[in-house]
Structure formats: structure tokens, C-alpha cells
């Protein structure tokens, strides 16, 4: 039991002890956080560029019944079952949103709102009725339990212990995302920037869209257990937006995901160690803090650079750019 909200800050217990006395579990939690941020950040760049941030939010909520039903049927955290369940739920979400807004006068934003809240409600009902005493807690759905990851069974491949299963999975998904982005970089770039041009170049615009959505669903499922459905949205959006205050080209934004992920993961872990709060929550708080810093001090469009009052400090480095629209 604690009295104070902010415990006294003790450098040793916050920064040294976790690495000194419990290296393995600390390392695993940080690694898991890193993988989650990395995978989400890479996909998230395209999600943000395509203005799908809130669709990402909707999908992350809607996957819940799929995951929950997979749980019910396999009564374990069987990864293939969860992936299938999530894929079905993901497809169902897209189809339902399309159906509602095509076949009635309900606008897309409301259609998204209706579908994801309903599916999420179904998921919560299933969990609270059937899975409450199993290892899936309704609250955990909302903020994840990354701290418990080191306790999970190990993934053994060819005799080599590759660490706890969720970490191996998340690492594989992150790798897959990165590979997909490298291989399909051009298609993703052009379809995101100018779908008309993409079509005129013979690129499969719709297939790319659904492919991206599937990759997104896959990433969310893998990350779900660690950070929960709401915080995963943060992992999608924050890296891309934060890096946008430093870089102006997509490859740079994508490379920027890696250091940011490391910062989120380490910062979140130690913040949570200090406050003794949810690690996933603390990771997003770190991400939010870094965003605010970038928002103020980022060289590309940061507040300080834009503000007239402070402008004189930076006049040397700042070139006034011609107006956006002429006549």
C-alpha cells in the first residue's frame, strides 16, 4: 500500500536495479515494447499518411470479439486461432462499415462509430461472461499487461530458446512489416500520395489498401496482449507524427521509427518503475511527452520556429518560403 502518488525518486531503484538484479525480465519487457512500437510505427506511417488514424482505432477495437471467440474455442492463447479470429473480425468491420454507409444515409464517421463500438461490446460481453476467470481480464484488454510477458512460455525453435512466445511473435511481425514495406515501398508510397496516379501506373490500389489493413490487423493482434486496444492506436500515430517535426521525406520518417521506439520503450519502462503504474500507459505517456517536445522544438513546423516572437532567434537557419497558393 502506498500513500504518495509520486514516490520519492531514487535513481538506483528506477534505473539501475531493474538492469542489475533482473536483467532478463527487464530486457524482455523493453524488447517487447521496442518491437511493438517498431511494428506499429512502420505501419502507422502509412496509416497516418492515408488519414486512416481513426480507422486504425476502430479496427483495433473491433478485433476484440474475434480474439475473444478464438480464446473461447481454443481456451488458450493459441496464436493461429487468434490471428484467424482477428482477421475475420477485421474483414467483418470493413464490410459492415461499407455496408452501412453505402446502403443507408448514415455518414462514414457515424458508421465507423457504430460498428466498432458494437463489435467491441460483443467482445467485452464474451470476455466478461466466459473468460473472466481465464487469463484474459476485461481491463487488460484496455491497457495490456506487458509486464507479464517474461512469465510466458518460451518459444523453442530447433532447440534454441528464442525467449517468451509473445516476444518472438512480435519480433516476427515487426520483421514482416518492415519487409513488406521495403518490398512494396513504391506501391505504398504512390497509392498513399495520389491514388489517381497509382491507377494510371497500373498499381493495384484496392489490393494495396486491403493488404495494408490486413498487415495492420496482424500487427494489432500481436501487440494487443502487451498494450491493449486503445494504446496500440497511440503506437500507430505518435511515431509518424513526432518524426514529422524533424523530417520531410517518407524514408526518413520510417527510419525515425526505430530510435523513437527505443525511447518510448525505455522511457516507459523506467517511468512505470518509478510510479509503479501500467508500463504500456507509461510508454504512451513518454510518446506524448516526446510529441510535445517535437511540437514545440521540432525544426520542421515546430511552434518555436513558427512563432514570430521567437523567430528572430532562428532567422539565420530559417528561410521564408513562398506562399502556398497564388491567385
Amino acid at each position: 500500500m502506498r500513500e504518495e502518488f509520486f514516490p520519492t525518486f531514487d535513481y538506483g531503484s528506477v534505473f539501475v536495479d531493474p538492469w542489475w538484479s533482473g536483467f532478463e525480465s527487464t530486457f524482455q519487457v523493453v524488447l517487447m515494447g521496442f518491437f511493438v512500437c517498431l511494428a506499429c510505427g512502420v505501419i502507422g506511417n502509412f496509416v497516418v499518411a492515408r488519414r486512416l488514424a481513426l480507422v486504425g482505432d476502430a479496427i483495433s477495437h473491433s478485433l476484440l470479439p474475434g480474439i475473444a471467440i478464438a480464446f473461447v474455442f481454443t481456451s488458450s492463447r493459441s496464436l493461429p486461432a487468434m490471428l484467424i479470429g482477428a482477421a475475420v473480425a477485421g474483414v467483418l468491420t470493413t464490410v459492415l462499415i461499407e455496408l452501412i454507409h453505402r446502403k443507408s444515409r448514415v455518414k462514414p464517421d457515424a458508421a465507423i462509430g457504430i460498428v466498432f463500438t458494437t463489435l467491441f461490446a460483443v467482445g467485452v460481453v464474451i470476455i466478461s461472461i466466459w473468460l473472466d476467470n481465464v487469463h484474459l481480464d476485461a481491463d487488460c484488454v484496455l491497457y495490456g499487461e506487458i509486464g507479464l510477458v517474461p512469465l510466458r512460455e518460451s518459444f523453442i525453435l530447433g532447440g534454441a530458446n528464442l525467449g517468451p512466445l509473445p516476444i518472438a511473435t512480435m519480433g516476427a511481425v515487426a520483421l514482416l512489416d518492415i519487409l513488406l514495406v521495403i518490398v512494396f515501398y513504391r506501391v505504398l508510397l504512390v497509392t498513399s500520395f495520389d491514388a489517381g496516379l497509382a491507377r494510371s501506373l497500373g498499381m493495384p490500389v484496392n489490393t494495396t489498401h486491403y493488404g495494408l489493413m490486413i498487415a495492420l490487423a496482424l500487427t494489432i493482434v500481436a501487440a494487443f496482449e502487451a498494450v491493449g486496444v486503445v494504446l496500440v492506436v497511440a503506437m500507430l500515430i505518435f511515431p509518424a507524427v513526432t518524426a514529422g517535426f524533424f523530417f520531410e521525406r517518407l524514408p526518413a520518417l520510417l527510419f525515425g521509427v526505430a530510435p523513437l521506439s527505443l525511447a518510448y520503450s525505455l522511457g516507459g519502462f523506467h517511468l512505470a518503475k518509478w510510479l509503479d503504474c501500467s508500463i504500456a500507459g507509461a510508454m504512451v505517456v513518454t510518446a506524448g511527452a516526446l510529441f510535445v517536445v517535437a511540437w514545440f522544438f521540432g525544426p520542421k513546423g515546430g511552434l518555436v520556429y513558427r512563432s514570430r516572437a521567437l523567430g528572430f532567434l532562428f532567422t539565420a537557419s530559417k528561410q521564408k518560403i513562398s506562399p502556398q497558393i497564388v491567385g
Binding site: 488519414r51 518490398v183 508510397l189 504512390v190 500520395f193 495520389d194 501506373l201 521525406r249 517518407l250
Partner: peptide
């Protein structure tokens, strides 16, 4: 019709015109 805040440079945009010839991979 396009988002001019998109993170690409002028050269990147013009190169997109070559993608059809270059083949996707």
C-alpha cells in the same frame, strides 16, 4: 486532390512518373 503535406520531395514526385516504366520491384 493530393495532400501537399505528404512527406515527399519534388524529385520523389517526379520519379513516381517513372514507376510505370521501372516495374514495381
Amino acid at each position: 486532390s493530393v495532400d501537399w503535406d505528404f512527406p515527399v520531395s519534388v524529385m520523389d514526385v517526379v520519379l513516381m512518373g517513372r514507376y510505370g516504366h521501372a516495374g514495381l520491384m
